[in-house]
Design a protein around this nucleic acid. Structure first.
Lengths: 230, 230
DNA sequence: TACCTTAGTGTAAAAAATACGCAATCCTAT
DNA sequence: ATAGGATTGCGTATTTTTTACACTAAGGTA
């Protein structure tokens, strides 16, 4: 038992994990194995240990609950509604993560805390436990806003990608069509993509060139005042 | 005494309060009256009560420690470094606030927790307690970033202001000169300022027209997809 | 009444964003 | 081998936005 002079809220983390497939932006949900909200869908998360930061806790929970190990991870917001958890006062620091879905598709493992884990299209979300619907809304807004002025979209693609895949990514996230020629002109003019000598494999039509995002170059340019903007 | 099965971090809030005077962007600091960091400068803040959200706590602390009552307030980031507080594990949700400095100048009261409260130019910051230097950096970056694509700058001005004052605000925050004619053209083209029939009083030169920000109009436009951008 | 300070205003040139269509390539099916 | 289907890859003209730039008007002070 641990005793304190004043009462303290419990502290948790929750993670909104985004992935992208051919046609959809998806998020990973787990079905809760225990009360409260047993059987409900929720974002993976859990309590923060005393010797870890919230970011470390978020990474740990992701690994424990889904087997996902490396990803882009950023703090989203801290939710502190007094009634947000029926167990009592629980404050939760929410994170959002971007993963290369292909690495995990159909292989997300469910841990002890979860009956199962499953990807849902952001357009077909089930009812969520706690205040997770609110967390989800904020995460989606953040992603939509941030993708336009920071090169985080690449985190959702494989290392090597075609310009069409990149364009599709933006079309799906921003939910609007883009002009192919203008898109290519703009993205290439930033000079942040390296054109590889390889081409797409196993497609039943003309194979597209593969590109890679030059993260180092971006970091260098950024510190000189350059700003990515789509 | 309050006992829990597992240990819990303590939860605090800290507030970075920005104000603007003629020539400088300023922040309000308090000199700590108690250990740890007694005598050091720090942002106002304190522990979160069990029946209040972190936002409510931030507002309460602002009122208690500085007498500031109404302001723009937004969550900044949650700091959870394991060693950030010598008293033990303390996680802090940081907020930043924008106030109309003229309302409080020379009248910020210091509460029991603070020896005194004082405005510092962001360019002449003293050493800060805890990890507050880190909090400050993030707050300043957030303000600089946000001021360009959300009309939050007005929160730093009085209700009625001249275009020159508005321009100066942006010049100070963004730390770069702007062209007068282009600035006016752009800001007026958004059609979010209402031109008042009044003029500036008591200046020893041609008096400028006064304007007001039309918040309702902005809210309406925003929901229709308009986005403020300077 | 001369002078100082800030307010208020337009235009031309450059840069960026948009709209738009067709031939080349590669695979597949016959 | 060859025709058809699917997707790649590319340039230009138009519109819109951004930038650069300087003088007169107004009001107060000495």
């Amino acid at each position: 038992m641990y005793s304190y002079e004043y009462p303290r809220p419990a502290l948790t983390v929750d993670c909104v994990i985004f992935g992208l497939d051919e046609n959809d932006l998806k998020v990973l949900l787990i079905e809760r194995a225990h009360d409260p909200y047993e059987g409900c869908w929720a974002f993976p998360g859990g309590f923060v240990d005393m010797d870890e930061t919230t970011e470390t806790a978020a990474k740990r929970e992701l690994w424990e609950e889904t087997g996902i190990k490396s990803m882009f991870l950023e703090q989203l917001y801290t939710f502190s509604g007094v009634e947000r958890d029926p167990r009592g006062r629980v404050v939760s620091v929410a994170y959002y993560a971007l993963v290369k879905l292909i690495d995990y598709n159909d292989q997300v493992r469910a841990s002890s805390d979860a009956k199962k884990a499953m990807w849902f299209s952001v357009n077909e979300m089930p009812a969520l436990a706690f205040d997770h619907a609110e967390i989800f809304e904020m995460a989606l807004q953040r992603l939509k806003g941030k993708v336009r002025y920071q090169p985080i979209g690449f985190e959702l693609l494989t290392e090597k990608f075609t310009l069409s895949q990149l364009q599709k990514l933006y079309e799906i996230i921003l939910n609007k069509e883009l002009d192919k020629r203008n898109f290519r002109k703009k993205i290439l003019s930033m000079d942040l993509l390296v054109e590889l000598s390889e081409r797409q494999q196993g497609v039943s039509h003309r194979a597209a060139k593969l590109y890679q995002f030059d993260k180092e170059k971006y970091t260098a340019l950024e510190s000189k005042g350059f700003s990515f903007e789509l």
